[in-house]
C-alpha cells in the first residue's frame, strides 16, 4: 500500500493524473454534458456514477461563446494499469492539503474513509478521481457528481458554486442561503410547486462579472420525509422510492417544476430563510454581515480548496445584493406567493 505525506503529495497527485489519463482507452463509458461555458467529458466505468451523470445535471443551452473542454477520468485499479490509491498519512488539515497542491498548480481533495482522491489540473483542465473499486465513492457523490472538479474549474474563472437554493420569476431570482434545517430546500420545492422557477438547490453556479447571475448545474432536489409529506410530494412522486444516504427523498427539478429549468436567473436579492412558526411569511431587511455568515460558511466548507477566494467572492456577492430575512409561514403556497409578490414588485 502506497503512503503519501504532505511532502510527497504533489508528486503523487501528478502520478494519479498520469495513470488515470494514461488509461484513457480502457474506460467502458464516456459521459458528456454541456454545462455553462464548459464541455465536461467523463471517462468512467459503467455503474452508479455513470448512471448518475446521465440524470444529475441540467444541460446548458449551446453557448454563443466557445466552451472550454474539461476531461475527468474516474478510475480504479480495474481500469488499465491504474494502481490502488494510496493512503494519506500524517496530520491532515484541508487547508494544508489544498495549499500544498495549490503550490504545485493543482487542486485536490481526499476522503480518508475510502482512500478517495480527486485531483485537478486547472491549467490543462484534466482531472482524476481515483477509488479503490468502481463503487467506492462517498454516498453524496451521485447527487452532484464531480462537483469538486466543477468547483475548481469555475473558481479558476472567477465564478463559484454556491451552496444556495434559488427561486425565480420571469428571469429574476433570489438566492436562498442558510444552514441546514432553516427551510431553504423546502422553500425551493414550495416555489416550484406553485409556479416559480429554480436553477437549483444545494449547488448553483454564481457569477458576479457583469451582474449577479445564477445558472443551473445539478438537477437534484432533496426533502426529508416530513417535508416530503408537508409539501404533498407523495401525490407526484413515488413515496416508496429508497431514501438517499441522508434519509431524504431525492428527485429532480423536472419532477416538480411547472416549466423547463431556465438557463439563468438574474439574482436581485439574497434571502436567509428561517422557520418562524407564524402563519404568514414576511420579508425583512437584514444586516449584510449576518447574511454573509449565513451564505459563506457552508459554501466554503463543502467545496475543497479556494478558501480565501471563496471568502472574497461571497463577500462581494453579499455586498452586491440587498439582503433579507425570509420568515417562513406554515403553508407552502403562501410562502411561494410571498416570494412571487416580492419578485413581481422588484420587476416593476
Amino acid at each position: 500500500m502506497r503512503r503519501v505525506t504532505l511532502e510527497t503529495l504533489p508528486d503523487y497527485a501528478r502520478l494519479l493524473l498520469a495513470e488515470a489519463e494514461g488509461a484513457a482507452l480502457r474506460y467502458k463509458a464516456i459521459r458528456k454534458v454541456h454545462l455553462p461555458g464548459l464541455e465536461l467529458t467523463a471517462h468512467l466505468d459503467t455503474g452508479a456514477l455513470a448512471d448518475a451523470m446521465t440524470h444529475a445535471y441540467v444541460p446548458a443551452p449551446e453557448d454563443k461563446q466557445a466552451s472550454a473542454a474539461c476531461r475527468i477520468f474516474v478510475s480504479h485499479p480495474g481500469i488499465g494499469d491504474v494502481a490502488a490509491p494510496a493512503t494519506f498519512v500524517g496530520p491532515y488539515t484541508h487547508h494544508g492539503f489544498a495549499n500544498r497542491l495549490a503550490e504545485a498548480g493543482l487542486r485536490g481533495s481526499y476522503f480518508h474513509d475510502l482512500d478517495f482522491w480527486q485531483i485537478y489540473d486547472p491549467k490543462r483542465r484534466v482531472g482524476a478521481q481515483v477509488m479503490t473499486v468502481a463503487d467506492s465513492f462517498p454516498p453524496w457523490e451521485p447527487g452532484a457528481p464531480l462537483r469538486a472538479f466543477l468547483h475548481w474549474e469555475y473558481a479558476a474563472r472567477g465564478m463559484r458554486l454556491a451552496h444556495a437554493g434559488t427561486l425565480g420569476l420571469s428571469g429574476k431570482g433570489i438566492l436562498l442561503a442558510g444552514a441546514g434545517g432553516a427551510g431553504k430546500s423546502g422553500t425551493v420545492v414550495a416555489g416550484l410547486l406553485h409556479g416559480l422557477d429554480s436553477v437549483g438547490d444545494d449547488y448553483v453556479l454564481v457569477d458576479t462579472a457583469d451582474k449577479v447571475t445564477a445558472r443551473p448545474l445539478f438537477a437534484t432536489l432533496k426533502q426529508d420525509p416530513r417535508g416530503f409529506e408537508r409539501l404533498g410530494l407523495g401525490h407526484r412522486l413515488d413515496p416508496a422510492r429508497p431514501l438517499n444516504w441522508q434519509g431524504k427523498h431525492q428527485f429532480h427539478l423536472a419532477d416538480v417544476a411547472a416549466r423547463r429549468t431556465p438557463a439563468s436567473l438574474d439574482i436581485i436579492a439574497l434571502m436567509v430563510p428561517h422557520i418562524s412558526g407564524n402563519e404568514a411569511s414576511s420579508i425583512m431587511s437584514m444586516p449584510r454581515k449576518d447574511a454573509m455568515i449565513a451564505l459563506a460558511p457552508s459554501g466554503i466548507a463543502q467545496m475543497p480548496g479556494e478558501r480565501e477566494s471563496g471568502f472574497r467572492f461571497f463577500s462581494e456577492l453579499t455586498r452586491l445584493l440587498p439582503c433579507y430575512r425570509l420568515s417562513l409561514g406554515t403553508r407552502p403556497e403562501e410562502i411561494a406567493e410571498t416570494i412571487s409578490a416580492f419578485l413581481a414588485r422588484s420587476r416593476a
Partner: peptide
C-alpha cells in the same frame, strides 16, 4: 472544514 471538505453539512449522519 478541517476534516471533510466535501461533506454534506446538513445532516452529518
Amino acid at each position: 472544514i478541517l476534516v471533510d471538505p466535501i461533506h454534506e453539512v446538513e445532516e452529518p449522519q
